[in-house]
Nucleic acid binder design. Sequence first.
DNA 1: CGTACGTTTGATCTTTCTCAATAATGGTGG
DNA 2: CCACCATTATTGAGAAAGATCAAACGTACG
Lengths: 255, 255
Amino acid sequence: MDAPQETGLHLLARKLNLHHRLSEDDQLAIVVLPHKIRRLEALSYILRESDRPDRCAVLIDGYAFRHKLTGDGSRQILSINIPGEALDFQNLFLEEADHNIQMLSRGVIADIPREAIEALILAHPEVGRAILITALIEASIFREWVVNIGQRDSRSRIAHLLCEFAYRLNTQDLGVDDAYQLPITQEQLADATGLTPVHVNRVLLALQREGLIERKRRMIRFPSWERMQDVADFNPRYLHRLDAGTNMHQANGAV
Amino acid sequence: MDAPQETGLHLLARKLNLHHRLSEDDQLAIVVLPHKIRRLEALSYILRESDRPDRCAVLIDGYAFRHKLTGDGSRQILSINIPGEALDFQNLFLEEADHNIQMLSRGVIADIPREAIEALILAHPEVGRAILITALIEASIFREWVVNIGQRDSRSRIAHLLCEFAYRLNTQDLGVDDAYQLPITQEQLADATGLTPVHVNRVLLALQREGLIERKRRMIRFPSWERMQDVADFNPRYLHRLDAGTNMHQANGAV
DNA sequence: CGTACGTTTGATCTTTCTCAATAATGGTGG
DNA sequence: CCACCATTATTGAGAAAGATCAAACGTACG
């Protein structure tokens, strides 16, 4: 067994540092934050709409997703989260949660008490700043999703989601070269893009026939990142990486 | 001539106070913030994608909107902003803007220098907190737009946008009873909902035939807020008003 | 080794888009 | 105040993207 108690929050420090440079001292303050490790099964809920958030869950291992249900029961997936991401910055400072957060796969999270975060922000203003910036970048991603769902056809739409996910994985050093494991089913992909599962399936097969993606099992590979980026109309500016401009397949010199 | 120098920032203090209670002292600090008043024509740009934000524009009079263009030139409108709202919390703390902000009508804005905001946050932590909360609520609204565009059919979609706008106007005491002036053309409404202008027109006429809305010129009235809310699948939780639960037509006791 | 879940396929239907034209409206200069 | 122009709103007919319904096929895992 590994020791997530010792390594888990390093991922968070690393993630925050990607968007706002932090001193060694500030990073250390994050790593030593009090927290409780929990192992969760796939589909278990981390937070439900209308809950009062009182702790901040940080994803250590596995994947999670945000979603919201409409009155007629359909589900819109709002984000797919990867290890190192804090799941509750969007809710922690508000009175009640406006969406659900659920594990996608089985995994591990670290729960940090709200008060510990508050104290951290007071003692380390730059960390507070990093949290603000990270929350604003999440908002930027939501805006891009509005654009993606509102304006792009199904082909670009799905390609865009695949590009974003690849790029973010790569940012966190979780991609294996140019291939990666897509942790979601086609039905979930449908709920994330506002399409039906049947149509998602047809689009994936079409992208494959065109040679834009290769798939075996849940593994996805882009034979040409450029062509894919082009089809997806993907411009990573909205992800606000500090070292943007660097080629995605050699980046991550930081930390 | 009125004196927006004296009254303009009161609107901002009022807006922030809606989401996070502020002391008299904190509110005063907002009102006396150094700023420059500018009168702008309709469609003039306040910020462009890739700009480096260095000031915060607060909308004093008139309407503005955020939008983003895709590679093939289509436009997605991301928000419609009303007087009292700060237009740059989403960009001010990031290196470069990821979307455009443009005036919808002619109007007046107050430009606050970035440094003044930074100093304010340091001297008045509760104002910093209010800014964080306000930015998080904007993110919540973007999420709801993802849901709206991703899951609802054109009828609910447009109804939802109309409800949200009515509710927000009312929150800022800008609605005239149950009727209000919708400051956008059907083409802009189309770009906000991911539909075509032609279809928006047909949906509006249908809503009108059903007796869900009355229109003359740009004026919109809901004969029955309940029926409209129902068609729109509108639940104002995502707007995180402190005094939510109060009936929208009698609210605003605060400040 | 069977069962549940996920993927793939086919046929048909619906919503929304596209293209094109006409009708109001509002603002402007004379 | 009126005539004109540019915008905005409305209408119709046909096309297309994506949804729906239904079934078959794989494959992971208990």
